[in-house]
Deep mutational scan, measured.
Amino acid sequence: MLDDRARMEAAKKEKVEQILAEFQLQEEDLKKVMRRMQKEMDRGLRLETHEEASVKMLPTYVRSTPEGSEVGDFLSLDLGGTNFRVMLVKVGEGEEGQWSVKTKHQMYSIPEDAMTGTAEMLFDYISECISDFLDKHQMKHKKLPLGFTFSFPVRHEDIDKGILLNWTKGFKASGAEGNNVVGLLRDAIKRRGDFEMDVVAMVNDTVATMISCYYEDHQCEVGMIVGTGCNACYMEEMQNVELVEGDEGRMCVNTEWGAFGDSGELDEFLLEYDRLVDESSANPGQQLYEKLIGGKYMGELVRLVLLRLVDENLLFHGEASEQLRTRGAFETRFVSQVESDTGDRKQIYNILSTLGLRPSTTDCDIVRRACESVSTRAAHMCSAGLAGVINRMRESRSEDVMRITVGVDGSVYKLHPSFKERFHASVRRLTPSCEITFIESEEGSGRGAALVSAVACKKACMLGQ
């Protein structure tokens, strides 16, 4: 009897593995994704193909990295998701002549009506938060230079001027797309009239992360975010950046690689679950690469896999709870928690219980395998993109072996128990001629924006502006 049951459990697990095998990517698959990513990057950089390229390769006008001589107080704003952060950054000489960066910050959550109302409502709310922060720190009387981390696709015309191309991540505030974001912020500050600010720089969160990590390690020339969304930036040779005049030196390019796949480059790798996630998203047909990796989508992918296993009578005796059938019910943090389970399955059992399920031991094991399959594919897909960037940098610099540091931020990278190990191992397999160091950014977005502002202020002083 026991043997029969054991055989049935083994057969069930084997069927589960057959279904989950769809998520496995072979090294040849990853090399294919990497080569296609490089081709799209090239198209994004070139003037004649930029418009139709899915990977936009947006110039950021960040050319210099901090040298350690900029000092002063800077205000930093960070808008990239449902939370908005205001930070005071003091850049100065530390002990023994070292450079020191001290920060104080406060988080504000953005109400739904500000995210989806008008641009005026959104930026009025942001300036209200700045006003509140300055009151708390008794700094209303000071006109501070301000660095703005704005983590949406922007076409820069200068370091302090950028046109919002399109909202992502659930934002829909009308009247912002096609307009200068810094102008919208300046107008809102003017409307309030109770404080003055000098907006000197606007950067993407990947750029802010790279600059913040450069402060720790001067070989950091790539910034990457794996959180709600997924994106990367890197220092490109100016001669390859056709959208900006000049051939000397390097400029940081914001790849906006989340949109890779929007022209069909990933079609052969998309599964039924991916198509369902895409169809029910706020932007169907867009940001397809990001939807395979980002935390906004990972939990939902797992939920759809679990429903398939229920329908195949391989999980929960073929019956799903009402909660499990509800879109968004299986949160991405559950994926991390399930994979963090120590082996007694308590954590998995508790999560499934909150979803109205009474799982068996085998159910718990199957749910864990589903989570591992989805998150491992995410790590491997992400590795193909980064390997594409790094191999490109090595080739354009004609280096036999390139040493490089990548600064990384984002909740999936930082909080998932195995993502970074799987990701690092896969990147290294795909970049055999590179020695890569990964560092995690601390308060990256805010500190990085302030350091970019410090560079901009120093330049302005040198130019006598």
Rank of each mutant, 00 (worst) to 15 (best):
R369E: 12
F152T: 04
K15Y: 10
T354E: 12
G178Y: 00
F423A: 04
W99I: 15
Q38P: 04
L25V: 08
R394C: 07
H105M: 05
F316E: 02
V401L: 10
G97W: 13
G294L: 01
G295Q: 03
V222Y: 01
G246F: 06
A259G: 07
F171Y: 04
L184Q: 02
R191Y: 00
V452P: 02
Y349S: 10
F438Y: 09
R333Q: 00
G410N: 01
E70S: 06
T376V: 13
I19L: 14
S76M: 00
C461G: 11
L307Q: 14
D205R: 05
H380G: 13
D4V: 12
E443W: 12
Q98P: 03
H218R: 15
G261Q: 00
Y289H: 14
V89N: 05
Q239G: 14
E17L: 14
L2V: 14
S398A: 11
G388F: 04
Y61M: 02
V374H: 05
G264E: 09
S336W: 00
N180A: 00
T118E: 02
C457M: 11
Q337E: 12
V367W: 08
G193R: 03
F123A: 04
T332D: 05
M238A: 14
Q138N: 14
H137F: 08
N313I: 07
K56H: 06
V226M: 07
T326M: 10
Y273R: 04
V154T: 10
V455S: 13
L30S: 14
K12W: 11
M139T: 13
G92H: 05
E319H: 15
F150N: 02
D365Y: 06
T354P: 14
A370I: 07
K346F: 11
E28K: 09
G328R: 11
R377N: 07
M393W: 04
G464H: 11
D158M: 04
V452F: 11
K15F: 14
H105R: 08
G147N: 00
L357T: 07
M57Y: 01
E440M: 15
T405R: 13
V200T: 06
V367P: 01
D4C: 12
C230M: 06
S340C: 06
C233K: 01
E442I: 15
C230P: 09
L271S: 15
L301Y: 05
C457A: 13
S426N: 09
E112F: 07
F195G: 03
T361S: 13
D267T: 07
E40D: 13
V62S: 04
T149D: 04
G183M: 00
R422N: 12
T342L: 09
M298L: 15
F195K: 15
A329C: 15
V338N: 05
Q239R: 12
C364H: 02
F269Q: 05
E120M: 10
M115S: 07
F133E: 01
M210L: 06
S375R: 06
Y214H: 15
M37Y: 08
R325T: 12
S396K: 13
L430E: 05
T405K: 14
R333M: 04
L184W: 00
G97M: 10
A176G: 01
F171Q: 04
